[in-house]
């Protein structure tokens, strides 16, 4: 699998997908296959994924959906 370039939109993100992507990022960074140019992006994405999982662990699905909607309306 190569989801390196295709980010899954957050409403479709699941623990499994998020965790897999997180593992991939960790692996890429450990294998030194990440250049410094994209390192910041990767770390940012990793922290997003961790935050996503942690928020989701502590929130109900409904809350998550509304949070995502808020984030989207802000960024839009």
């Amino acid at each position: 699998m190569s989801p390196k370039n295709s980010k899954i939109p957050s409403e479709d993100l699941t623990y499994e997908i998020a965790f897999q992507e997180l593992k991939d990022i960790a692996l890429e960074i450990e294998n030194d296959s990440v250049t410094v140019d994209v390192l910041a992006d990767k770390v940012k994405r990793a922290s997003e994924l961790i935050q996503f999982c942690q928020i989701k662990l502590r929130s109900t699905e409904a809350e998550i959906t509304s949070i995502i909607k808020q984030m989207e309306s802000k960024s839009a």
Binding site: Y15, F19, L22, K23, I25, A26, I29, E30, D32, V34, V36, L39, V43, A46, S47, I50, C53, Q54, L57
Partner: peptide, 26 residues
């Protein structure tokens, strides 16, 4: 669920360490 979060945190610290190492190397 706690185990999952611990995985997350472990990956987080691994990332932090690796990134620091990488930045130091650079």
């Amino acid at each position: 669920n706690r185990k999952f979060e611990e995985y997350l945190l472990r990956y987080q610290s691994r990332l932090v360490i690796k990134v620091q190492e990488k930045m130091n190397t650079q």
